[in-house]
C-alpha cells in the first residue's frame, strides 16, 4: 500500500534527468501541431502583397487588419455569425430542455412501455445522420422550411445521447430528496428544474458543450438545407467565400477562417476542463 500512496512529486523528481529529452520531443510535437494555426493567424494579419512567401512568414509582415475588413463585403459574414449563434443556442437550450424532461420521465416514473421506448431510442444511436437526412429533407420541403434556419435547429432538438446520459445521472440522485421536497409541497416541475437540474450541473454542461459544438461546426446540414448566403451558418459560409474567389484575395479567406476559429479557441481556453470532461465522459467524435 505504501507504494501506491507514493506521492507524485517524489516520482517526478526521480524521473527528471531522464525525461528532459521526452519533454523536448513532446514540446516539439506540440509546436508542429499548432504551427498551421500560427501560420493562419500570421497570414491573416499580413499585407496581401507580402503573404504566402516561401519560406513562410511566422510573424505578420507589414501587419494590417485590412484583410478582416474586406470579409464582410464579399459574403454577409456578420449575418452568418449571427445565424450560427442563433441555431446553436436554440439547438442547445431546446435539446437540453427536451432531454431533461424525458430523462426525468424515464428516471422517476414507471409506466407501461418505458423500457421498450428507452431501448428503441438508444438503438437510434447506431443510425447515421446521413441515412435520415433524405427523408428529413423531403419533410422540410413539404413544410416549406428548406432554406430557413428552422430546418437547422428543429431536427437538432432531439438528442438521444443527452437523454441517455442525463437519465443515468438523474438515477444516481437519491429519491429521498424527491420525497422530502414532495412533503414540503413541491411539484414535479419544481423538483426537476430547481433540484435535479442544478444537482446535475456537470452532466448538463458536458451535454451543452457537446450539442453546441456539434451545431456550431455542422457543415452537412446547412449544405443540404441552405442555399441563400443570408441564411447560411459560418462553416458553409466559409466554403462559399472560398468558392466565390473571383474577388477574394487568399489573405481575405485566411482572415475569415481566423474569425471563425479564434473565438472557438478562446472559449476553449476558458472552459478547457469542461471541454475535456465532456469528451472523456461522452466519447463522441466530431
Amino acid at each position: 500500500m505504501t507504494v501506491a500512496v507514493q506521492s507524485p512529486k517524489r516520482r517526478r523528481r526521480k524521473l527528471r534527468t531522464g525525461s528532459v529529452i521526452l519533454d523536448v520531443a513532446l514540446a516539439g510535437f506540440g509546436v508542429v501541431m499548432i504551427a498551421p494555426l500560427v501560420w493562419l493567424l500570421s497570414t491573416s494579419l499580413t499585407d496581401p502583397a507580402e503573404a504566402f512567401q516561401i519560406p513562410p512568414n511566422w510573424v505578420p509582415v507589414n501587419a494590417t487588419f485590412d484583410n478582416f475588413s474586406g470579409v464582410n463585403d464579399l459574403v454577409p459574414f456578420g449575418q452568418m455569425a449571427l445565424n450560427s449563434l442563433t441555431v446553436s443556442v436554440i439547438a442547445t437550450v431546446g435539446s437540453l430542455l427536451v432531454s431533461a424532461l424525458a430523462a426525468y420521465g424515464f428516471s422517476r416514473f414507471s409506466f407501461r412501455g418505458r423500457n421498450g421506448i428507452f431501448i428503441m431510442m438508444l438503438s437510434a444511436l447506431m443510425v447515421p445522420a446521413q441515412l435520415l437526412i433524405i427523408p428529413v429533407f423531403i419533410l422540410m420541403r413539404t413544410l416549406n422550411l428548406v432554406d430557413t434556419l428552422v430546418a437547422l435547429w428543429l431536427p437538432a432538438l432531439i438528442h438521444v445521447f443527452s437523454i441517455f446520459f442525463l437519465r443515468q445521472y438523474f438515477n444516481s440522485i437519491p429519491r429521498d430528496l424527491d420525497d422530502a421536497a414532495k412533503i414540503d409541497g413541491a411539484g414535479h416541475v419544481w423538483i426537476l428544474f430547481r433540484m435535479i437540474v442544478p444537482l446535475s450541473a456537470p452532466a448538463i454542461s458536458a451535454m451543452a458543450i457537446l450539442v453546441f459544438e456539434a451545431s456550431w461546426n455542422n457543415y452537412f446540414g446547412p449544405l443540404i438545407f441552405i442555399s441563400t448566403p443570408e441564411n447560411m451558418t459560418l462553416p458553409l459560409g466559409l466554403v462559399t467565400l472560398q468558392d466565390a474567389q473571383g474577388g477574394v484575395a487568399p489573405t481575405g479567406v485566411f482572415a475569415a477562417i481566423t474569425l471563425v476559429v479564434l473565438p472557438v479557441l478562446l472559449v476553449f481556453l476558458l472552459f478547457q476542463r469542461q471541454f475535456v470532461a465532456s469528451i472523456a465522459t461522452a466519447g463522441i467524435r466530431g
Binding site: V98, S99, F106, F109, F111, M120, L131
Partner: peptide, 26 residues
C-alpha cells in the same frame, strides 16, 4: 403513469418525426 408519458412526450414526438419516421421512410 400518465405523468411519465407527459414528461417524455416532447422527446417521443420529436423522435418519431426526425429519427424513427425518417428511418422507416429511408
Amino acid at each position: 403513469e400518465w405523468l411519465g408519458y407527459l414528461f417524455i412526450s416532447p422527446a417521443v414526438v420529436l423522435f418519431a418525426v426526425f429519427i424513427g419516421g425518417p428511418f422507416v421512410f429511408a
